[in-house]
């Protein structure tokens, strides 16, 4: 039995459903009752009841790609801020292609405090802080572009269903867009003008994430902006 309509706003503690359902994101189950645990929009599926949250913070998950900032350099690695309650560790062996020699190698030559990296989380659980790697293709130090920060709750909307939104953005703005699951997005384009347009579009998506027909509206906005420039 459902107690709300689909896509209605719910607050923490609201009884969403009772019966044989699975508690999805941002909900919890007490016996056969499912309650909301965050402010957001409720979505009733065939089996799963979930809440699309209005605001969340980033909790690391193995396999996520994130954008982080180097905060400290240790003797055998770096401490990285990944916009989450937990600081991530990047070991020298996960960053260098050659064997790491503590006496000879100066880690600040590769990455120094303040540098940004695009990395993947290789391990995380309740007991240990997340560990990163930048050894895979596409990962590594960020050398150019601009950064936008949005709430991690909006990331699925920015990517869109089957990446429709992000592909449209890339096509329309001619920028390379790298999305970190932690709510940090890197944009690098042929000119600052292009980048500015992409940032504007992303901020608009984050602001209007809960409305329908967004992809079309964003496309229209970008085309209009581009038209004015010419």
């Amino acid at each position: 039995m459902f107690f709300f309509e689909n896509r209605q706003v719910v607050t923490p503690g609201d009884l969403l459903a009772e019966g044989d359902y699975v508690a999805g994101n941002n909900t919890y189950k007490d016996e056969s009752r499912i309650y909301a645990s965050r402010l957001g929009l409720v979505e009733y599926g065939e089996k799963v009841v979930q809440v699309v949250a209005l605001n969340t913070f980033y909790i690391p998950s193995v396999g996520d790609q994130v954008i982080g900032k180097i905060e400290d350099v240790n003797i055998n690695g770096w401490v990285v801020n990944i916009n989450s309650p937990y600081k991530a560790a990047l070991r020298a062996s996960e960053a260098l292609n050659k064997p790491f020699r503590q006496q000879k190698d100066d880690l600040t030559r590769f990455l120094d405090v303040g540098d940004l990296i695009f990395a993947k989380i290789i391990s995380f659980d309740r007991t240990i802080d997340p560990v990163l790697t930048i050894k895979e293709p596409g990962l590594g130090k960020i050398t150019q572009g601009q950064i936008v920060k949005v709430s991690p709750a909006k990331i699925p909307r920015i990517i869109g269903r089957k990446a429709s939104m992000i592909n449209m953005l890339k096509k329309e703005t001619e920028c390379k867009i790298t999305v970190g699951q932690n709510g940090i997005i890197l944009i690098s384009g042929p000119s600052p003008e292009h980048e500015r347009l992409a940032i504007m579009a992303i901020e608009k998506i984050a602001q209007e994430a809960h409305t329908s027909g967004l992809t079309d509206r964003i496309t229209e906005m970008i085309r209009k902006e581009k038209g004015e420039k010419k």
Partner: peptide, 11 residues
Amino acid sequence: LADAGVPMRDL
């Protein structure tokens, strides 16, 4: 707390 997105059992 609810605004911050902290998961809660109830208000």
